[in-house]
Nucleic acid binder design. Sequence first.
DNA 1: CTGAAAGCGCTAACAT
DNA 2: ATGTTAGCGCTTTCAG
Lengths: 345, 345
Amino acid sequence: MSNQTPSPRRNRKGAMQPTLNDVAREAGVSSITVSRYFTSPDNVREATRIKVEAAIEKVGYVRNMIAGSLASATSRVIPVIVPSLSNVVFIDVIKGLQDEFEAHGYQLLLGKTDYDLTRETQLIRTFLGWSAAGLVVTGLRHDAATRQILENWNQPIVEIMELGEGLDLNVGMDHVAAGRAMTEHLLARGYRDIHFAGAELDRDYRAAMRYTGHREALAAAGIEEAPLLDLPVRQQMTSGAQALERIRDQHPECDAIHFANDDMACGAILAASRLGIRIPDDIAIAGFNGLPIGEHVTPQLTTIISPREQIGRVAARKLLARINGEPVGELSHDLGFTLRVGGST
Amino acid sequence: MSNQTPSPRRNRKGAMQPTLNDVAREAGVSSITVSRYFTSPDNVREATRIKVEAAIEKVGYVRNMIAGSLASATSRVIPVIVPSLSNVVFIDVIKGLQDEFEAHGYQLLLGKTDYDLTRETQLIRTFLGWSAAGLVVTGLRHDAATRQILENWNQPIVEIMELGEGLDLNVGMDHVAAGRAMTEHLLARGYRDIHFAGAELDRDYRAAMRYTGHREALAAAGIEEAPLLDLPVRQQMTSGAQALERIRDQHPECDAIHFANDDMACGAILAASRLGIRIPDDIAIAGFNGLPIGEHVTPQLTTIISPREQIGRVAARKLLARINGEPVGELSHDLGFTLRVGGST
DNA sequence: CTGAAAGCGCTAACAT
DNA sequence: ATGTTAGCGCTTTCAG
């Protein structure tokens, strides 16, 4: 009525996109009926539905998610916040999340903190401005500002990777237990002088949790010392090779290295074959993650398979369940892990 | 005026978020001034700016991007469409894109086609409903529907990975030339019976382009036959190992394998060491991508380093330049590649 | 099952 | 440099 120009109209940018009204006019119904065709088709009669469908096709209508989100104060966007994209672990998790979200018509908005909790706060603030339907965030450690924002936000949240007391939902595995399990395996194999090697464990605090488990297992076996080598990160495989050389050099009595991840462990195995170090006779090597490469090196790597992609999938499913008001089961979901024994131990 | 309830008000979801108006009232200015504080701070006087800042802090205002996008018919969201997240190549590209976008206040919306062009069309349709500021899409091959939508869309687009006649901007490398370069290297080394091995080359058509270059190089050397092994994809390293065995078995005269990627090539090198096949004496191995692992296997892998992350960065920068109306330089940007010769050839 | 009215929170396009 | 007015295109609410 107030608009003089008939369809097609142009928006302020000069573009010319058909709107719900254009479809409605074409179909001979009101715009709200077309809206309902999208949001709750069950409330639209078959005959009307067909008319609307034809009109949509005819005018080439594309739903404007922005307008819909403004009106409904919620959007089908789900921000996912990870610390890094250089780590396969998060890539696999994202893959799981993406698959599930995409299948259910939700969009994944990707944010990266570089392990900076302040950056995390900023990202979350921005993302909440998108009226997100939910949020996926890595880890249970956040700064006070983040925690305050999220506690006042009444949409579902999943914290992934670890287990514990969280903000809302929580999907992951027990890293302390994983570290313990691997070291128990090494002890059972008869290794006694076991070193733990990681890279920047203060940042990668989940690896530090595995070191804690490692120490616990040693202590339980009456071994009080748990030697630790914490290297600066360069390239992970290179760090692994370096760790092997360093430990062989400074601690010739060491009979096994428990690496913080498979990249480092494989770097060590490949370096060993270059240097003529026999694995596991001269020294045993263990990793963590269960990456494909571990099965291709000689000897095959003993490692713990982490349920990375599944963490993504389950996290997504729980979040969507909560968004749709369905039951989510237990708040904290432990996906476990599997020890895969190769020839390297 | 028309609103009876004073601040703070509640939106339709029952949540209670302060709006621009709340900030404006607090600061004693009009809402548009607060808006300008965000969008063009240079047009706001220092004194006003300070008042506004204090008010924002006081009421805990968070910008509502949705409302802003609706009003301005453009959002700071950039959809990125890739075929797969299982391929490191795209991960590295995404990393480059994400870094640049995040640094400039743009959000990356992630879409995955699984190499299905119809899915690509759907994704693009959905994403355009987000009033995206631009679009990043993989490859130059799209179906008719996609092409039609994008030709009528007047926002910047970057097609990445390949080079050629595109929709708009275009950042990548010349895959035919890369394939040619590697095979010229192999020929220069004296290899004559060179096989090309890939996995699902119909899907991975950029690898098929490298095969084309490979064939060209052979033809230029007077070799008319270019034997090809195209395996079904399982795990890439496993396929590489399999290819090595298959070729050794069926073509004992073959003296070099040109693999479609580093994963396969490294799978072959690792398998060779298991099987007692000497590289490069018994057979030479070449890859493509320049992944870290290639430097850690023995012998080191001869490969072509693709500028993956840089493709992401440059693509992002060109897109942002165009969004901001700055000059973008040439439409098609060739990032080249580097041959890295290891001991495997 | 369908419609009319109202407005989500912001910004473009003029003013001043 | 700041304000006024009028929507952006959709969904909510309330009627029928």
